[in-house]
C-alpha cells in the first residue's frame, strides 16, 4: 500500500494556483496561496479550524470567489465568465461534509441529474453509468430509495458516486468524514482509497491522518490562511519543521 503514494503522478498540471488571495469583507482568509497540483496527485490539506483549508478548495470550483491572483484548472483560467466556471465545475467533482444529496430525488436520480442536464447524456446511458458507480461504492441495491432512508456513510458514498457520474478529472473532498459516526468513516475512506488507487487527482481536506499517511503524495498544513508547510507524508508526520505544525500534530495525534 505504501507505494501507492508514488504511483501515477504525471508532469501534467491539473490545477495551478498563483498568488491567490481572498477576503471576507475586511477579513483576509487566504493569503498568497501558491499551489500546483499534478494530474494523478493526491493531496491532503489539514490545519486548525478557520485556517482557510475549506475555503481554498471551494475557490477551485468557484463556490467561493477569490479577489486576487489566478486559479487555472485543466488549462482553463477561472474568471467571472460563467461559461468558464460551468466548464470547470463539470470537470471537478466535489464531496461535502454534509453530503448535500438532493432529498426530493431518488439515489439514482441524484446520480443521473447532472449527466442528463449538463452533459446531455441520454437517460438510459446516464442510468447505466450511475449504476456502474453505485456498484463501485457498493450500494446498487439502494438505487431507488431516497437519501433520507440511507445512513450517513451510505449517503456520503452516494455523493461520491454522484460526482463520479460526471466523469470528473479532479475530485475535491471537503471534510467528507467529519459528520459521520466512527463505524461509517471506514466505509467512506475505503471508497476514497479505491478511487486514489485508480489514479484520480484528489484534493482532500480531512483530519484523518491515517488516510493521509496511506494515500497522499503530499500533505499540506495551513494556518491563518497561509500554507505553512508541505511535504511528503512520511517526512511531514515524522519530521515536521514548523513549530506550528509540530504543535498541531502533537494535538491531533497525541491521543
Amino acid at each position: 500500500m505504501a507505494d501507492t503514494a508514488q504511483m501515477k503522478v504525471s508532469d501534467e498540471v491539473a490545477i495551478s494556483i498563483q498568488q491567490m488571495n481572498k477576503w471576507y469583507g475586511a477579513f483576509h482568509v487566504l493569503r498568497d496561496i501558491d499551489l500546483t497540483v499534478y494530474q494523478g496527485e493526491r493531496i491532503v490539506i489539514c490545519g486548525p479550524s478557520g485556517s482557510g483549508k475549506s475555503t481554498l478548495i471551494r475557490c477551485i470550483n468557484a463556490l467561493e470567489e477569490h479577489q486576487k491572483g489566478s486559479i487555472e484548472v485543466d488549462g482553463t483560467l477561472l474568471s467571472s465568465d460563467l461559461k468558464n466556471i460551468d466548464k470547470i465545475r463539470s470537470e471537478v467533482g466535489m464531496c461535502f461534509q454534509h453530503f448535500n444529496l438532493f432529498p426530493h430525488l431518488t439515489i439514482l436520480e441524484n446520480c443521473t441529474l447532472a449527466p442528463i442536464w449538463v452533459r446531455k447524456t441520454p437517460k438510459k446511458e446516464a442510468e447505466e453509468t450511475a449504476m456502474h458507480f453505485l456498484e463501485k461504492v457498493k450500494i446498487p441495491d439502494q438505487a431507488n430509495k431516497y437519501p433520507g432512508q440511507l445512513s450517513g456513510g451510505q449517503q456520503q458514498r452516494v455523493a461520491i458516486a454522484r460526482s463520479l457520474c460526471m466523469r470528473p478529472r479532479i475530485m475535491l473532498f471537503d471534510e467528507p468524514t467529519s459528520a459521520l459516526d466512527p463505524e461509517m468513516i471506514k466505509e467512506v475512506l475505503d471508497t476514497m482509497i479505491e478511487l486514489a488507487e485508480e489514479g484520480m487527482t484528489m484534493l482532500c481536506v480531512t483530519h484523518e491522518m491515517g488516510f493521509a499517511r496511506q494515500v497522499a503524495n503530499r500533505v499540506i498544513f495551513m494556518d491563518e490562511g497561509q500554507i505553512v508547510e508541505q511535504n511528503e507524508p512520511e517526512a511531514f508526520f515524522n519530521n515536521p519543521q514548523s513549530p506550528r505544525t509540530q504543535l498541531f500534530l502533537s494535538q491531533i495525534l497525541g491521543h
Binding site: A62, L63, K87, R89, F96, N100, F102, A114, R162
Partner: peptide, 18 residues
C-alpha cells in the same frame, strides 16, 4: 433550504435555470 443544496447544484455544473 440549506445552502448546501445550492452549492451541490453549482458544483455539479448546473446553470442557474437548471
Amino acid at each position: 433550504l440549506p445552502k448546501g443544496q445550492y452549492e451541490a447544484a453549482d458544483s455539479l455544473g448546473l446553470d442557474y435555470p437548471q
